[in-house]
Design a protein around this nucleic acid. Sequence first.
RNA 1: GCCGCAGUAGCUCAGGGGUAGAGCAGCGCAUUCGUAAUGCGCGGGUCGGGGGUUCAAUUCCCUCCUGCGGCACCA
Length: 688
Amino acid sequence: MPVGPVRAVRGRAAHRERGLQRSPCLRHGRLFALGARSPYFPRPLEGRKARPRTRLEPTTMEAKPGPDLERMRHSCSHVLAAAVLKLFPDAKLGVGPATDTGFYYDIQTSVPLTTEDLPKIEAEMRKIRERKLPLVRSEVPVADAVAFMQKTGQSFKVELLELLATRGSTAAKGLEDPNLVDAGAGGVSSVSFYTLGDFTDLCRGPHVEHTGQVGAFKLTKLAGAYWRGDSRNPQLTRVYGTCWANEQDLKAYLHRLEEAEKRDHRKLGTAMGLFHIQEEAPGTVFWHPKGWTLFRTIERYMRSRLEADGYAEVKTPQLVDRIFWEKSGHWENYRDAMFVARPGKEGEEEDRLYAIKPMNCPGAVQIFRQGQRSYRELPLRLAEFGACHRYEPSGALHGIMRVRAFTQDDAHIFCTEDQVPAESRKFCDLLRVIYRDFGFADLLVKFSDRPEKRAGSDETWDKAEAALEKGAKTAGLETVRNPGEGAFYGPKLEFVLRDAIGRDWQCGTLQVDFVLPDRLDASFIGEDGAKHRPVMLHRAILGSFERFIGILIENYAGRLPTWLSPIQVRMVPIADRHVDFAREVARRLTASELPQTDGGIRVDVDDTAERMQKKIRNAQLEQIPYMLVIGDKEAEAGKVAVRLRSGRDLGTLAVEDVIARIRAETETRADIVDPPAPQQAPNQAKAP
RNA sequence: GCCGCAGUAGCUCAGGGGUAGAGCAGCGCAUUCGUAAUGCGCGGGUCGGGGGUUCAAUUCCCUCCUGCGGCACCA
């Protein structure tokens, strides 16, 4: 029942619900509003075609909720509220809008709601639906509305009414209601009520005619939600529900949820033997051999791309005196989120307090500051696979996606102001190539400009924004404006990629920084012989390795492309007498030099006492791209029978041919010989 | 951090005030097999930690930890 949206909930892309919620770097509400006009890359990059990808979603329904479905869901939230009020007469209502897949209502009760209440509420809702109660709209003067809500004890509604009366909008936390821009600064003089039986709610509407038109629904979960999205406010109980035109659609939706769950990187990652997390180290990852192989493969790849693009790699200390962080400004802003460390000796005189680095940039500045820099050295690109620690709030932790220790593919480019556009462009080009190599074709770029609270003069910001914009433009990027969301020190581009099931993940960033060089006194000698401040570009492409690997796992549902697979080939000897030959083939594969690898093709031998069928089954379950079967025929001919994880049989090949295939495949970083079968049309960037 | 839920074998899960169970995995033996599960046998648990109630707690209560779903946060 949004009187005015408390959050921007107008977007409708299917990915919103699950995608953004799992994409912790996004300002949710903000992107929702932007989702409607996503300028994905206007044209495909030359060279390689986007890989076809499997796609679970969406049904037509979910892709295009349409006004009817949305209206129905909105009405369903009123039915929910009416049911709750019947069961809990003292309940105070907050807001209850429709969402992408259903609705919710924020409710405060004297006795907290529990999941056991949900079936009771559902039953009550069904009764209301059966009674086909009309939803009747009425226009009410604000004063009367306030009086009514006061009388019925609906204090949150009173608060909303007061906001409407004074501001004409209920928008919270700077989220403006696009539908109310014309309301002007003044407030409204009357509001609309909707009455459903003996339940009357403040609401803008529209609604279905009667409750019998509400479709198949199910209450799905309970969660706390701060009133008006502000953690200083009391927390209400948010009852979530999903609602569909009919039972079939509801079932289909629940099924899709299950399917998406199967991609969960926490489940898959553990099952694939990549990593684990345990209680004693919350929010930090134990990388197992296979997971670390994947990590290193990505790192090696990134390193080669960066080197080719003129970056030099550095490594800066983990542990730096607190004083340093005070200088950089981090202590002041992020002290609560920083880990600190003291020497273990107790009672010693020296009692310096160190902090584990939460970011790499101040360290990079120190390297820049050593000796005297010349303009001839610029742009100086310093890359660091920096391991950072941040004490993230416990509730934010999520598998390896949101952790307290992570490794960024970070780099800092020191340059002149004039060089910013060219450097931006160069970076955007690199980023696109890299995303493409990982199989992501869809990209959304946000341009976050000056925030209200900022450092630097307006002229500086004009320059910085213009430079960044020019860079984006020359890189051929279309951007969505993300007003007021820049860093306090400068504007940023934010790169959001879309995965195989349509979820968005913000990964890359490019930030222009005029502040830190000044704070940490970085300078270079210009052509004119005078000292100048460099501009600093902060940039990352993957974001964090941990999170990006999580995204890869979910995107590919564990079925990583060959170049990324920790094990690329599984030798399957049919009987014990074939093991020796299998081992020999494995040695030859290992000895073959693949691009981007340390040790050639990654292969292992299944020499267990299992039957060949079982070995193949195991290899399938492990999603190993190549299975090389060896029996009497192969051993005799010195060849191998090649099976792909798609189930395709390539027949019997010479070992050299297999090596050549895998080499070609890893060079192009695509599954050439074993393309995943698209379940539906390849993912298209839809303009909702 | 806040609200709700959960924690039982390596994994998935059942059970329940009176010495804990299945499937898979593991180990052993047999089998040596032609493209997604060979058979038989064996071992395995402070029932997340601490405290309380009780003759007796894995089960009930309190508390802490961790995880899950949201909210808030995300340099």
